[in-house]
Amino acid sequence: DETGKELVLVLYDYQEKSPREVTIKKGDILTLLNSTNKDWWKIEVNDRQGFVPAAYLKKLD
């Protein structure tokens, strides 16, 4: 059920640097789980959840 889920576009590649982070690729469109922290957003990638720098993402309307 995708209702109410926010999507984000990945602006730059990011390689995870800790187990709490996930790797993302430029151009991916992913589900945003939590954006309350202005610097690190929690997203879902391939059934994995983790954090990436918010500056690497853009919210889609």
Rank of each mutant, 00 (worst) to 15 (best):
D1P: 15
D1R: 03
E2Q: 14
T3F: 13
T3P: 12
G4Q: 12
G4L: 15
G4S: 15
G4W: 12
K5G: 09
K5S: 14
K5R: 12
E6Y: 13
V8F: 05
V8P: 00
V8G: 02
V10H: 00
V10L: 01
V10K: 00
L11N: 02
L11H: 03
L11P: 00
Y12N: 10
Y12D: 11
D13W: 03
D13I: 01
Y14I: 01
Q15G: 08
Q15N: 12
K17T: 13
K17C: 09
S18H: 12
P19E: 10
P19F: 07
P19R: 07
P19W: 07
R20K: 11
E21Y: 04
E21Q: 11
V22N: 02
V22K: 02
T23D: 03
T23F: 03
I24S: 01
I24E: 00
K25G: 05
K25S: 10
K26T: 07
G27T: 02
D28S: 11
I29W: 04
I29Y: 05
I29C: 05
L30W: 14
T31P: 14
L32K: 01
L32H: 01
L32T: 01
L33Y: 04
L33N: 03
N34L: 09
N34I: 08
S35V: 05
S35M: 07
T36L: 10
T36A: 13
N37T: 06
N37I: 06
N37P: 04
K38S: 12
K42D: 03
I43R: 00
E44A: 09
E44I: 11
E44S: 09
V45C: 09
V45D: 08
V45Q: 07
V45F: 15
N46K: 13
N46F: 10
D47E: 13
D47I: 06
D47Q: 13
D47R: 09
R48V: 07
R48L: 06
R48H: 07
Q49A: 10
G50R: 04
F51I: 08
F51L: 08
F51K: 02
V52F: 02
V52A: 13
P53Q: 03
A54C: 07
A54Y: 03
A55G: 10
Y56K: 05
L57N: 00
L57Q: 00
L57E: 01
L57R: 00
K58N: 07
K58E: 12
K59N: 05
K59S: 05
K59D: 02
K59Y: 07
L60M: 08
L60D: 03
L60Y: 08
D61H: 13
D61S: 14
